[in-house]
Design a protein around this nucleic acid. Structure first.
Length: 599
RNA sequence: GGUCCGGUAGCUCAGCUGGAUAGAGCACCAGCCUUCUAAGCUGGGGGUCAUUGGUUCGAAUCCAAUCCGGAUCACCA
């Protein structure tokens, strides 16, 4: 239990004892951190009780303060400032918190339980390489999965690969027409980039066809639907669903290239999955569900054979679930996948990390499953995040403004190399260690940049700002960690969790403000973790870690650890340093960001 | 038009289950390397928390209306 929680319980108990006749609602007890400009550590807000008890704030504060100081072992004193009761925590409490926890590898973690949660993220299409928008998705999903584990959940990380559909057929057709049998090897390209190249080519050719038809007098909308290439793509999709051997063969070959390309990128990003789903395997399940829905009368058929659901009662519209020609649409396969996931793992919760442009789609998906009485419906949760935009506006593949994921990673690593070399800090590393360091810094900066903003907010990716390795960045946190490691090296302390040996001590000295600020922040970590998990919000860990590193840097500039005033102080500060490094490592580790020991 | 999301410093963002004088980073200005790593530290300027009204001891935070920006409402995925 955190100190803040302990104080809350103590206040509740105190009020009950002091005023046994008055009913007090525990939810009204408000504990804040005391603002730095006042004396004290935690603040009890007195106003809610002033009215209830018909007492003046000062009188109430004095009674409550006296009670807490006398009847709990936590506080050394209190001060009342305009309706706020500021409690000062005993130095000995801070010291024992440190001694008990500085080396505790499960600090902040909650016990495991049976709750099964699937987090689906990444979910690429196999017609083009990963781009910058995918990176926000991937980092967010991976981080949320790790964060959920800290609160004891049994987490399954899943990737759903969108490997079928008309868009896939488009790159296949362009490849057939133009590639002359090119392979990733012969073209010297990553497989995903090769497929993406032909996807773009298809759209170029289609545009030409449409332009020709419009010039010949065809209506533009009609031309877009009836251009020969478009008809060819639709025909290919039908052949694919019918299992045509040639089409399937080409499809398998090209998808194989794309997977090889994705694997390279995932590996580089440090991203893994426990389970990979392919929509080519799930869309038929979706079709079966649609049939079931028809039998149940939840769905209905129109004259041309297309299948729909009526959601007007729920304030939505009619929604298409199966085309007139019997082929699936986007939501058909999603229905199947939802059911499959649930049956595979008996999920309590199924989290979809998907951009907010699909809020409506996800709302409809959940509603349809619910109406059909599928048990998987209740656990579906859409973790909706805002799109990544450029300062000039939205990224569009057709306009070539999409930032490629592989290029972005290269650029960040190149940048960290450049800045490390500029600062002349390359001594004492082997060439191999330097490469690792550049990757750690570059990738860390990229992940942090994308995770530091609250997920639901749309974010602007400013290439200039993202190049900055100062301030609110992973680099700042990595640097603080490297400084701690440097100190510990000199003191011959190895930073291996659970093995740090420092003498337990009783410090009689006064804890200085800079010291207390750090210990107080360390004490917050469990509640920060819990909040990040509750809200599925990794940015809380970014904010917290940055503030902790900031406090350490201030502390570091003012007070020496190695040359502390006496041995007791030195041990105390070493414990603080060890614990800070461990907490930073843990928090950043959840985000997939490594902290170097030297930089 | 309906629904959903956002609007806080020049820029990017915290703060939003109501609490003290609204915080960071970047940028700008002035200092700090003979002391554990200056990718750092210290200080400074910079705000009508979109607007208006309401709720109350107290509103950036809650409610209502309005304005601005975005997403979405396809036999695309």
């Amino acid at each position: 239990m955190t100190l803040s929680d302990q104080l809350k319980v103590a206040v509740e108990f105190a009020l009950k004892n002091l005023f046994p006749d008055v009913e007090i609602n525990p939810a009204q007890i408000q504990i804040n951190l005391t603002k730095p400009e006042f004396t004290g550590d935690y603040t009890v807000v007195l106003f809610p009780f002033v009215k209830l008890l018909r007492m003046k704030p000062d009188a109430l504060g004095a009674q409550l303060g006296d009670y807490l100081v006398t009847n709990t072992p936590l506080f050394s004193g209190y001060a009342i400032v305009s309706g706020f009761l500021n409690m000062s925590v005993k130095d000995s409490v801070w010291v024992s918190f440190l001694t008990e926890n500085f080396n505790n590898t499960s600090f902040g973690l909650q016990p495991e339980h049976e709750n099964k949660v699937m987090v689906e993220y990444s979910s690429p299409n196999t017609n083009k390489p990963l781009h910058f928008g995918h990176l926000r998705n991937i980092f967010l999903g991976a981080a949320v999965a790790e964060i959920l584990k800290t609160t004891g959940n049994n987490v399954i990380k899943a990737n759903l690969i969108n490997d079928r559909g008309i868009h896939i057929c488009k790159s296949m057709i362009a490849w057939k027409h133009l590639a002359n049998g090119a392979t990733p090897e012969s073209a010297g390209m990553k497989g995903d980039h090769l497929a993406g190249y032909y996807y773009v080519k298809f759209n170029d050719l289609l545009k030409q066809e449409v332009a020709t038809m419009v010039a010949a007098g065809t209506d533009e909308k009609v031309a877009e639907k009836e251009a020969p290439l478009m008809l060819e793509a639709q025909e290919m999709l039908r052949q694919w669903e019918a299992g045509d051997a040639d089409v399937r063969h080409l499809w398998e070959t090209m998808n194989g290239w794309v997977y090889e390309g994705f694997d390279v990128t995932y590996k580089r990003l440090g991203i893994t999955f426990d389970k990979v789903y392919h929509e080519s395997n799930t869309y038929l399940l979706g079709k079966k569900l649609v049939e079931k829905g028809l039998e149940k009368g939840v769905l209905f058929k129109k004259e041309n054979g297309s299948v729909w659901i009526d959601l007007k009662e729920d304030g939505l519209d009619e929604k298409l679930l199966l085309r007139g020609d019997g082929t699936s649409v986007y939501i058909t396969q999603d229905l199947g996948t939802a059911e499959l996931k649930y049956n595979d793992f008996q999920l309590d919760k199924s989290i979809y990390v998907i951009a907010d442009e699909q809020n409506y789609h996800m709302q409809v998906l959940k509603l349809i499953l619910k109406k059909m009485g599928e048990p998987c419906a209740d656990g579906i949760y859409h973790l909706s995040y805002g799109m990544v935009e450029l300062p000039s506006g939205r990224m569009k593949s057709r306009e070539g403004t999409v930032v490629d994921a592989d290029d972005m990673v290269d650029e960040m690593i190149r940048l960290s190399r450049e800045q490390t070399e500029q600062s002349g800090k390359t001594e004492g590393f082997t060439a191999e260690e330097l490469e690792t360091l550049y990757e750690t810094i570059g990738l860390g900066a990229l992940k942090f940049y994308l995770l530091r903003v609250e997920p639901k907010k749309k974010m602007i990716f400013d290439p200039k700002e993202s190049r900055d390795l100062h301030g609110f960045t992973a680099t700042f946190i990595q640097y603080a960690h490297a400084r701690i490691c440097s100190i510990l090296r000199k003191e011959n302390i190895k930073l291996v969790p659970g093995t740090n040996e420092l003498p337990a001590l009783i410090v009689n000295e006064h804890i200085l403000p800079l010291e207390k600020k750090m210990i107080l922040q360390l004490e917050q970590y469990p509640s920060v973790l819990a909040a990040a998990s509750d809200e599925l919000n990794p940015s809380e860990l970014c904010n917290y870690s940055f503030q902790l590193a900031q406090s350490f840097n201030s502390f570091y500039a003012e007070l020496s650890i190695a040359k502390a005033e006496n041995e007791e102080k030195k041990q105390l500060r070493l414990m603080m340093a060890v614990m800070t490094a461990m907490v930073l490592r843990h928090a950043m580790g959840l985000l997939g960001i490594r902290l170097p020991e030297k930089m």
